[in-house]
Design a protein around this nucleic acid. Structure first.
Lengths: 339, 339
DNA sequence: TTTCGGCCTGAATACGTATGCGTATGCCTT
DNA sequence: AAGGCATACGCATACGTATTCAGGCCGAAA
C-alpha cells in the first residue's frame, strides 16, 4: 500500500479494532499484554507512528511548547544575544525529556505574537524570552492572561505582574560584582548599562552596585554612569564617552558581558591596561567571556537551571498545578580582568 | 460562551455556512468580497484563529519545518557549537517569512530521530545540522530517502549522497587561509583538526591547506598536524602536544575558531606571541573570534545565506520542485592574529 | 445452574477544518 | 421567452485519533 499506515491498518492486520490499537500503543492497561505485544510488533514492522495532528486534535493538546524570542530589530540580522542562545539548549532538552516538542520563533517586537500560538492550538504553553519595552509588554501579558494562555516569562519581576516571571537575582549579582571590585581596592567604579525602569534587569544590577558602594561608604557618582544596551558597540561607545569626559575611574562594572567586551576594546584603544589601570567585571558569563584577554571576571547566571526552571514551571501551569515565581542565584566568576 | 470559537460559531453569526467561513478566511476567491469582509470582522471580534491541528490534519501538511541538531554527547550539557547557533536566527527568520513554523530538537546522536518528525506529520520537512559519524549517518539518510521524507543536510557532500547537502566551500576556504599565511612569509604551518573522512568538513579544509602548500613548493609535514574535534579544550591540548614534540612552526591553521581559541591560550601559556612567534588563522568567524586578543583572522562562512539556502532548498523540495546541491562561498577575514 | 464481578474488546462518535461536487441566483445572449 | 454561463454558496464527507459506553467472556461464589 502506498500511503502511510493508520491505526486502522494495524488493527486489520492484528485482527482487532482501531480503538484497541490506540490503547495498546498508548500504554492503556485495559489491553492485555499479549495483544499489546502483537500490535506493537506489527506497528514497528509497518513503521507506524501516531499522526500528531489527529492526536492533538482529538486530545485538545499538542504536547508542544512555543519559545518566543524577542529582540530589538537590529540592522545586523544575525546577531542574537548569546546569553539567550545558551539557554536554548537547556530548554529544548528539558522539554524533550518531558515529552514536549519545542516550537521556536524570533519575533520582532512589533508583531502580533499575542494572538498566535496557543490560540491556534499549536502549542500548549509559551515561554517568553528577551528584553523589550515593558509597558507595551505589560499590555500584551494582560491580554494573554485574559485569554487563559499559559506562559512563563524570563526577566525581572514587575510590580503587579500579569502572569509569572522567573529570573536571576540581578541585584545581588550586581552587589557581589561591585563588592569584589571594592575588595580589590577600587574606589572610582563606573557603571555601564541603562539604570532605568525601561531595562529592569539592568536597573536591578545597578541597585546592587549602588548598595555595595553605599555599604563601603562610597557614593554612586552620576558622572561615572553611562547608558548602554547590551551590545559590543554600545559598550565601546559608552566607555569612549566616559574617557572623553575626563572623569577619573579605576574600575568598570558592565551590566552585561557584551558591554564589557566592548569596554575592554575601548580601554585597549586608549592604552589603558586591564586590570592594571581599570578593573573590569561583566555579567552573564557568555562563552566569549573566558576567551578575552585578560579573561573576563563576570557574574554567571545558571543557564541550565534557568532553562529547566522555565520549562518545569510552564508545565506545572499547563497541568493546573500551583506555581511560584522565584529567582535563581548568580555566582561571581573571578578571572583576570579584575586583578 | 466559554470555549474558544470555531468556524461554525463564526458561520452562525455571519449567517453563512462553515465552509464559506473557511474559504473566506483562506482568501479563496469563490467568496464575494462583501461576505468576506463581514466574516473577517466577526472573526476578528471573536478573536478567532484557525485550529492548526484540525487544519493540518485536513490538509495533510503542517506548515512546519523541523530542525534537527546533532551533537556529540558532551559531559558539559550546555556547550553548543556557536557556529550552528548563529545559523539558527537566519533559519527561523527565513522559515517564518515563508509562513512556516520551526520545530527544533537537539538530538543525541544515538536516538531514533529518523522515524520521527515527518512520519508523525508534525513537520513537512527536516533540516539536519551538526557533525556526526558519517557512516551511521549514511544509513539513516538512506532510510529517510526511502520513506520519502523531505530533508536537507548541512555539511560536506559525500560521494553517492542519499538526499541533498548544502555546505560551505571548505576546500577553497582552507586554501585561502593557508595562502594568506604563506603570503605573510610563514613556512612551517601547522594544521589542527582531524584530517580524515570521519570529519569531511575538516578534511576539505585540510585539502585546501595541502594544495596551497604544494602550490608554494612546500610540503605538508605530518609532524605539523594534530587531530582535534571542534572545542576549545581539544585545540588547547593539540597545540600543547605540538609544542611538547619540539617541532618548529611559525603558523597555525586551525580547522575551527574554537580550536584556534584553545590554540591561542596554549601559545600564550608557553610564552609564544601571536602573531609574532606564531601566526594564527581559524575558521567559522564565530562571534568570539573578534573578541580575542589579538582578534582572530578567520575564514567566514556566510551564516545568513546558509540559513536561507537551507530553508529555500527544503521548501522547493517539499513543493516538488527541482533542487540542486551547491556550495556557499567563504571569505577570509584578516584580523590581528595573522600579523 | 445461576449470578455476579472483573477483564478485555468493539461500536459509535467527537475533535475542527478543508474541499469536491452540486445547486441556486442573476445576467447576458439569441 | 428560454437557454447558457459565471458567480457564490451549502451539503456531505474525509482527515486519523482517543474516549465513552456497552457488551461478551470467563471463572468463582452461591
Amino acid at each position: 500500500m502506498g500511503r502511510r499506515p493508520t491505526s486502522f491498518d494495524i488493527a486489520q492486520l492484528a485482527g482487532v479494532s482501531q480503538p484497541t490499537v490506540s490503547r495498546a500503543l498508548s500504554g492503556n492497561p485495559a489491553v492485555s499484554e499479549q495483544t499489546r505485544r502483537r500490535i506493537q510488533a506489527i506497528a514497528a514492522q509497518l513503521n507506524y507512528s501516531v499522526d500528531k495532528n489527529a492526536s492533538s486534535l482529538r486530545r485538545q493538546q499538542a504536547n508542544t511548547l512555543a519559545l518566543l524570542f524577542f529582540e530589538d530589530p537590529t540592522p545586523d540580522d544575525s546577531m542574537i544575544n548569546p546569553f539567550f542562545l545558551a539557554m536554548l539548549g537547556s530548554i529544548t532538552r528539558t522539554a524533550s525529556r518531558a515529552g514536549f516538542d519545542l516550537l521556536i520563533s524570533f519575533q520582532q517586537l512589533s508583531s502580533d505574537w499575542h494572538v498566535d500560538y496557543q490560540d491556534s492550538h499549536k502549542a500548549d504553553g509559551i515561554i517568553l524570552l528577551g528584553y523589550g519595552d515593558y509597558e507595551d509588554y505589560r499590555a500584551r501579558l494582560t491580554h494573554l492572561v485574559e485569554q487563559g494562555t499559559h506562559f512563563v516569562r524570563w526577566g525581572s519581576p514587575m510590580a503587579n505582574e500579569p502572569g509569572i516571571t522567573l529570573g536571576s537575582e540581578n541585584r545581588s549579582g550586581g552587589y557581589a560584582a561591585t563588592r569584589h571590585l571594592i575588595a580589590r581596592g577600587r574606589q572610582r567604579i563606573a557603571f555601564i548599562g541603562t539604570a532605568s525602569s525601561h531595562a529592569p534587569e539592568f536597573e536591578d544590577r545597578w541597585r546592587g552596585y549602588r548598595d555595595a558602594l553605599a555599604e563601603a561608604g562610597l557614593e554612586a557618582d552620576p558622572a561615572l554612569q553611562r547608558d548602554s544596551v547590551t551590545s559590543e558597540e554600545a559598550g565601546h561607545e559608552a566607555v569612549q564617552s566616559l574617557i572623553a569626559a575626563g572623569t577619573r575611574f579605576d574600575a568598570i562594572f558592565a551590566a552585561s558581558d557584551l558591554i564589557a567586551i566592548g569596554a575592554m576594546r575601548a580601554l585597549a584603544e586608549q592604552g589603558l591596561s586591564v586590570p592594571g589601570d581599570v578593573a573590569l567585571v561583566g555579567f552573564d558569563d557568555i562563552p566569549a567571556a573566558s576567551f578575552t584577554n585578560p579573561p573576563l571576571t563576570t557574574v554567571s547566571q545558571d543557564v541550565k537551571a534557568a532553562g529547566e526552571a522555565l520549562v518545569d514551571t510552564l508545565l506545572r501551569k499547563i497541568r493546573g498545578q500551583a506555581v511560584e515565581p522565584y529567582m535563581l542565584p548568580t555566582q561571581l566568576i573571578v578571572r583576570g580582568s579584575s586583578g
